[in-house]
Design a protein around this nucleic acid. Structure first.
Lengths: 95, 95
DNA sequence: ACTATAGGCAAGTCGTCACTTGCCTATCAA
DNA sequence: TTGATAGGCAAGTGACGACTTGCCTATAGT
């Protein structure tokens, strides 16, 4: 639960999610180039890769390997469960 | 926008919000005692106070001073705008 | 006036986080 | 097979975040 918020706390990670929301199933290099092109990001490949790990551990994305490519797919489910907690009622347990 | 996620990233701050959601308008000491009682929190008064500052800067709570008391009120508005971004569509700007 | 209560301010510690650097593995194309 | 492409691993650095410690201000009760 807290992993999701921590993952969303970083602006670069949010931009990655935005990018995947706009075009799902991108590889690491695709995301890197598109982030630097469109959003003016200057982060290195390794930086983005580590952000991906955080997002995956939070369950916000899942990956699919194919040859030397690794495709990243967005999973909106955690966001939905998140909204359920904080908008219907705020007094759930904290797992 | 990112301030809200950073504020929600900490489990103690989420418990504070839970506490205020259950009983709005508490003072700092009330929240401190109730957190240690019900949730088994061991944080000091200053720690909680600093968490409050973070929550207030994020716009999640607002305060009202009255004599030597300072009452804390929850503001669900930012949470609502948050859900609007991440559940209707994910490709908004990042302000 | 004096004391207790509710809270604020600021420096300092310690751990985590974002990011870099350097090197290594694996897949594909020529 | 050689070289280029896509990605991984791990140690190290710098900054920020959570929390503590110590002291200070202001309001209220007696």
């Amino acid at each position: 639960m807290g992993d999701i918020f921590k993952a969303l706390a970083d602006p670069t990670r949010r931009k990655i999610l935005d990018e995947l929301a706009e075009r799902d199933g991108q590889t690491l290099f695709e995301i890197c180039t598109r982030l630097t092109m469109k959003h003016g990001l200057t982060s290195s490949r390794q930086a983005i890769s580590q952000h991906m790990d955080v997002l995956e551990e939070a369950g916000l994305i899942h990956t699919r390997r194919e040859g030397r490519y690794k495709f990243h797919h967005l999973d909106p489910e955690p966001l939905r469960r998140l909204a359920d907690r904080w908008l219907t009622k705020l007094k759930e347990k904290d797992p």
